[in-house]
Amino acid sequence: MAHTEEIPQVKVLPPDTAKIKKLWRVAGILALVTIAEFAVAFNIPHEYKDLRIWTFILMTIVKAGYIVGEFMHLRYEVKVLFWSILIPMIFVVWMLVAFVYEGISIFEVRQ
């Protein structure tokens, strides 16, 4: 019975201030990159399409790196686990390249 069960005396450790400070710093970096994305969206004209797209992709990868590496702690996991997650993502990159190329070809055929 849950209500009759004694909750064992749990030893609560003090907050790890260095770690918490680091987490807030990562949060600050993520916020800054998002603000930078807005700066690019409104200051680089749409005529520079490729420059815009590649800056966005680069900043997205930076953000993803911080979220997966620090928040999800993958950077500190064993190398085998790290690469088991990262290597399959190569297929996704290839799929992206192949399908966008395919889309451009469909566009050209339709012309």
Binding site: L96, F99, V100, F107, R110
Partner: peptide, 8 residues
């Protein structure tokens, strides 16, 4: 991305 690049 595929469908978008297939559209004008």
């Amino acid at each position: 991305g595929l469908v978008r690049s297939a559209h004008p």
